[in-house]
């Protein structure tokens, strides 16, 4: 459940104000946000994730107005309810695959069984690399790990920022399938923000900025 109203944002020392259309997603509804670069796509994603505070308007996730939360509550809320996938395949460099997921769970303070980790690792084809350090992984494995990190704590919302822009058609399909599949499994809303029109077919709801 996610709902935004009259969302605007202005960067410090900059004149242009981004204003965003209202978004309302019910449980298990997904959304594709399309737009050219520089139009404020990432800004919108950061507003939804509570990484930025809107100048005006509200972001409500699961009946919580997150822009009203103080930093500490927001950290906690984000940890528990939001999963983020970035274009840059990310993970904590000094840890291995398994440890990355464990760290993810540790910080989100969710008690999740090891079997759940195993399941996600298997679904994402990472089980045999779970003891590999992050820098020993291939691009594809890293991408899958970042998806795993975004879903392992069973968030309410999965936010993905250009998850496919550097991928070829085939991998683009695989990644989108994985994201939608994982969102369904955890009953989360999936919002993908991209300029990559190849992924349009995966969504019923699309807005263009």
């Amino acid at each position: 459940m996610i709902h935004t109203e009259h969302l605007t944002f202005q960067y410090k020392k900059k004149e242009n104000v981004f204003s965003f259309p209202n978004i309302t997603l019910n449980q298990q509804e997904n959304l594709l946000v399309l737009g050219k670069s520089g139009i404020g796509k990432t800004t919108l994603l950061h507003l939804l994730a509570g990484l930025l505070k809107p100048t005006n308007g509200t972001v409500m996730i699961d009946h919580v107005v997150i822009n009203k939360l103080v930093t500490k509550q927001l950290d906690k809320f984000r940890g528990e309810n939001i999963g983020l996938v970035f274009q840059k395949k990310h993970a904590i460099q000094s840890l291995n695959v398994l440890e990355n997921l464990q760290a993810r769970l540790y910080f989100s303070k969710k008690k999740i069984e090891n079997t759940a980790i195993e399941t996600v690792l298997k679904q994402l084809d990472l089980n045999e690399f779970k003891h590999n350090k992050v820098n020993k992984l291939s691009e594809g494995q890293l991408q899958r790990l970042s998806i795993a990190s975004a879903v392992i704590h069973q968030p309410k919302v999965i936010l993905a920022d250009e998850p496919t822009s550097s991928l070829d058609d085939e991998n683009c399909k695989i990644v989108m399938k994985l994201l939608i599949e994982q969102a369904q499994k955890t009953k989360a809303n999936l919002i993908v923000i991209t300029h990559d029109s190849r992924i349009k077919p995966f969504f019923q709801n699309t807005i263009t900025l």
Partner: peptide, 18 residues
């Protein structure tokens, strides 16, 4: 160098203090 790692940890729910 690892500011990105640390920022990621924040999105994981880690507080500044952590």
């Amino acid at each position: 160098e690892r500011s990105f790692d640390l920022a990621i940890l924040r999105t994981y729910g880690a507080s500044n203090f952590q």
